[in-house]
Structures are given as C-alpha cells and as structure tokens.
Amino acid sequence: MQVAAVSPPEPPSTDAFLRAVGDDGTVAPAFAAEAARLVELWRGVARIRRTSQRLVALQREGKIGSHASPIGEEGALVGAVAALAEGDWVFPSAREALVSTLRGVTAEAYVHHAFGDARDPLEGRVPPDHLCSRAARVAPPPGTLGGHLTHAVGCAWAMRNDGAVVLAFLDGAAASTGHFHDALNFAGVFRAPVVFVCRNDGRREVDAATEGGLAGKAVGYGLPSAQVDGSDAVAVLAVVSEAASRARRGEGASLVEVLTSPPLDGTLDVPVDRDPLLTLERAIDRAGGDPSRAKVLDELDQELARAAAAAVGAGVAPRSSIFDNVYRELPGHLRAQKGRP
C-alpha cells in the first residue's frame, strides 16, 4: 500500500501537511512499517535534541563560537536520515550537520569540532556545524546558503548506477537562491537520484509565490513533491522513504517540504503540540511504552558531559592546520608563510 504518496509533478494541496501520528499518539494504520521504528526514531531525536541543548549552553558560556541549533526540527533530520541505506549520502547544511551523529560520528568528535580544538577532526579550521565525514558519507556543509545543493546533484549523478541515493537538506530560505534553481533544474534534466528535504520553519512566506508553498516550486522542474509535518518523524520517514525508492528505481529526484516549528523567541522551548520528541513519546506510550527511555537520556547526558570536559582540556589546534590541506602539497609561498613566526 502506498502510504505517503509523493505526488506527481503538480503542486500539493497546502490544506494540511501529512501526519502519521494522531494527537492521542495513535499511528495511522498505513504507517505500520514506520511505526515499527518508533524507538529508533525517538533515540535519534533525543540524541540531536540533547546534543544541541549542550552546544547552545556551551555557546552561551562563551566556550564555542556559534551553533546552528536544529531544536524543534529534529523530526525532519531524523525521519529523513532514517530513510537511507548505509551506502547513501547526505548533504546537510550547517543546521542539519548534527545528522552525522546519527551515522557514526561520535558526540565526542562533534563537540571537539564545535570547540575547534586540537582533537577536532577539522583542526579548528571552520566554525561549529561544518563537520563532514567520508566514513559516514556526510558531505561538507556549504559556504553559502544552498551552495551544496548542486553538489548533491553531481554526487547523485555520479552514483546513479550504484543503487544509492543522495539526501540533501536545505533551509526554506535556500529555496530562494540560484543554487536551488540550478540544483532542481540539473536534477530534473539528469534524473539524478536525489531527495531534497526542505525545512520550512513557518517564516517562509517571503520565499514562495507558488501554489503549494515551497514544495510547489518543484513543478517547474518536472519533479514530484510532497509536504509533511516535521513534528512527526514517522510521517517524514514515510515520505522520504517513498522519494528515495523512486530515486533508487531510476525515476529521479523529489522535493519534500517539511513544516517545522523551532522556537523563534530565543528560548529552547518547542511548542508542546509541535514537538517531534513529544510526538514520538506519545506514539511509543500508546504502543506500550519504552522502559529504556530514562536510561538512554542519562547515558546521552553522560556522553555529552564527558565530551565537553574532554574538549575543554584538549588545547588549541596546531598552527600548521592553517596551512596544511590548502593544497595537497605545501607550495613554496605557503612553506614560507608557515615557517614565519
């Protein structure tokens, strides 16, 4: 049964974003496959939430420079990444960079990265939330908003015969950039196996004149699109799975618009009725509960506390990191600059 149709290339109705979990925690029968993964989804959302809360605290303490928090939007991140197979790739922007911790990057490595310390895998070169990992198949977040979207298309084209797909995240504001147009245009022309997941945080009325919101923009590129409620990771998983399946079958790219509800008032308080963590907890409780919940949170907090403590004591990145990896071999002019005190 087709649970969460990715529509043919015509604008979706904006009447309601797709949901799987009802207010009382009941998961609609059509989403039985996804419902089997409720605990896994909750653990992912909890991991992102707790890590981001810790990074916000570290930023406010002045220990790290910045943090692009995805709090309140974790349903989009976790639901979409849960739709991937191991060989698939993810192209996040900074606000989704924490998805690398769902694919094998440890909290410790991520916190070291946020500090830019001596044990940061990127040796302090770039600000927080720009971590990438080839082992995790997570590409580098872009320098400018939306700049990675065409990278995702090129990577998808390159792997089009390998049965793998690319997941590219974008902020709704990036849907106004030329990068977005280039990416969707090239993806349509090349039938690249890529799924664009666009977070709409509710402030995107300046970014779309199209019928069907941001998702409606896909029509012009011949791509199907869908709208889904980001407070419902189950629904996100279902829709992105369907889009990924299309891509895997050689049917090309899709655009999924995910309506999220991050706190926009400077607090970390996600509206209770729009909280992806609470939505999953309601569904899990309705299905019989999860006795491991407190233990998982406790372990997460301990892991993050250890990571923060380790980062505080790790020392600064080496001066050589400024010069190394500009080119593979250090050219003469950089040898001279590196050697100069």
Binding site: H151, V153, G154, C155, W157, D182, A183, F186
Partner: peptide, 23 residues
C-alpha cells in the same frame, strides 16, 4: 551537454568530484 548555467555546471562538477570522479 549541460543546461546553460555556470553555477550549475561547476556545482554539479564539485559533487561528482566529491564522489571520486574527475570532472
């Protein structure tokens, strides 16, 4: 043969290169 967009050509080429091709 690509669509006429230098940003699209170069961005797509970067993605191919990240995957390990030589565009």
């Amino acid at each position: 043969d690509t669509p006429l967009s230098e940003g699209g050509i170069l961005g797509t080429a970067i993605g191919m290169a990240l995957y390990g091709m030589l565009p």
